[in-house]
Design a protein around this nucleic acid. Structure first.
Lengths: 335, 335
DNA sequence: CTGTTAGCGCCTTCAC
DNA sequence: GTGAAGGCGCTAACAG
């Protein structure tokens, strides 16, 4: 049932070349001819086959966004920004989820590279090492989002996690907290995000002359993963009076768990999150969080990606995006 | 730089047909031949061009999911289920956002229909009338998610909004609440979701012999939109002692606003939400909500869509998916 | 079992 | 200013 360029040409009594010229608004077509062709176009309800066009052009106008999990509000927010910005730039976004699992990140990146469906990939990676990524990036335009994987060969956009964690920790110390603990991620596995944030956390404690803080690891950054770690931290002899959570999700889970334990926030325990997801200021108490400028991340990432797609061969670049500690009720100073 | 089937054929000294047979695991290829071709395949690192394959096959293996806004957790959750299920079925998902605006829903659906990029569309529509949709669905496989647009010509998957709203309202009345108000959406515009839920809400009140409840409309279903409406409802002479919110987002915003007004939940005001987003049980107090079975929605919707893609010409079907009122702290009975 | 051939629908170099 | 022809990379008839 599909109407092709040829059908229109036959209908209008011209060559397909001329129809193509009209469709693509090329010059060198006489007005009368243009009108005649346009009439046939309308009458037959012609729709260009973008598949064929892309095959011919060698590009699809599609980029893939790979995130761990869309049920995490931060990634929903990020996807929103990417879709919006890409749309402005004339690109469409395919979204896939990696679950944060390295093998799935690898497989999806590989599929993208092989398929030639997509012009480029935005990867919000959690688990891949720089070596993995280098091999996969071959022949495909890729920009990394989120963490700063050490010396990867790929472009990267993210915040300065060390500085942000340091600032948040200092904020808690200056609010009179004496036993700050970190919550989330894994110090042992190749979890670059947590590694860097722990670094900033410890630097702040050291700078203030405090003993090293504790770290409650979690298998992922979901709300549901906070509870066990929080309970372990609080069952100690000297339980923490402040929690630096490495995602807003974990922070929300921590708020809930503290409530169940009968502890008051911020009176007994202060809580700070990371990401400043849209919902965090609506929690009770409202959550202090490190805000990443997501719109700027999307903008910078797409700019880099489009340059790569355009054939830029520059060395890998590392764009640092602004962040800001947004102070709300959950970290009010103690008296 | 791309390696084509022909290149491999030349390298292996066979025809491209044979290479294609090997790549697609067809029979009728002798083992020795297969081995030889496979060697060339590996050596040249051949990657099939999916664009060309799709052009040839007449289908792309891509479906489009259109949702209002990925920053709303419910739609993030929904997208998650759709992506996961589609992946199981061998499909990839393109996600686009409509902002809930009818003209954008129309434009995106139109683009999808024209482009031949996509085999089918899942549309979580808010604003399009049945008439709009009928015209657009022409020639494209479309399944509607969410609300039950009156007598549309398209397949549809959703919950029974009337029954769910009725059940939630009855729950509040049975908990001893006497002045239940509804919150969210628009009774005036073509907001089918709100229309149906209001119907259930009013039916429950009528069945209990209560006067008609009030409705606080909101421009959208975001958290931030709850505050003004909640304040207006509570400034009245006889303020409500229970709020039936037409999304969890609105409920979360209401919880926050009530907290700011110094009202206790559930002691002074009970709150019920809709959707049971992943985060809602972590709110303080945890939120009572109407749970939609999202995995089942995704499954049913994709089944319907794939049947349409496969050429089924059946009349429009309407699949009703299970829902459940999940009772938590925010709607505890008053004493 | 394997090779040849003809398109899928589009765009574009080349002639006219 | 317009027409004819070829090919993007792949697969499916049709031989042999």
């Amino acid at each position: 049932v599909a109407v092709t360029l040829r059908d229109v040409a036959a209908h209008a009594g011209v060559s397909s070349r001329t129809v193509s010229n009209v469709v693509n608004n090329y010059s060198h077509v006489s007005p009368t001819m243009r009108a005649k062709v346009q009439a046939s176009l309308d009458e037959l309800d012609y729709r260009p086959n973008l598949l064929a066009r892309s095959l011919r052009a060698g590009r699809s106008g599609i980029i893939t966004l790979l995130v761990p999990d869309l049920t995490i509000p931060y990634f929903g927010d990020l996807a929103h920004e990417v879709v919006e910005r890409a749309s402005e730039l004339g690109y469409t976004v395919m979204v896939d989820e990696t679950g944060g699992r390295p093998e799935r990140e690898r497989a999806l990146l590989d599929t993208a590279a092989r398929s030639s469906w997509v012009d480029g990939v935005l990867l919000s990676s959690l688990g891949l090492s720089a070596k993995d990524l280098a091999g996969l990036g071959r022949g495909m335009s890729v920009v990394l989002l989120g963490e700063r994987t050490a010396r990867s060969a790929l472009d990267h956009v993210g915040i300065d996690n060390v500085a942000a964690a340091r600032s948040a920790t200092t904020h808690l110390l200056e609010g009179g907290r004496t036993r700050v603990a970190a919550l989330g991620g894994s110090a042992t596995r190749k979890d670059a995000t947590t590694h860097l944030r722990l670094k900033g956390f410890r630097a702040a404690l050291a700078a203030a002359g405090r003993p090293a803080g504790q770290h409650g690891p979690t298998p992922d950054y979901h709300r549901a993963s906070a509870a066990p770690a929080v309970r372990i931290l609080l069952e100690q002899d000297e339980p923490p009076d402040a929690l630096l959570c490495f995602s807003d999700e974990l922070a929300a889970g921590a708020l809930r768990t503290l409530h169940e334990l009968g502890l008051r926030v911020p009176d007994d325990v202060a809580v700070v999150g990371f990401d400043d997801a849209d919902g965090s200021r609506f929690l009770t108490p409202s959550l202090t969080s490190v805000r990443q400028d997501r719109a700027e991340i999307a903008r910078a990432a797409l700019d880099l990606l489009l340059e790569r797609i355009g054939g830029a061969e520059a060395r890998a670049r590392d764009v640092s995006v602004p962040w800001e500690l947004v102070v709300r009720e959950s970290s009010a100073a103690c008296v």
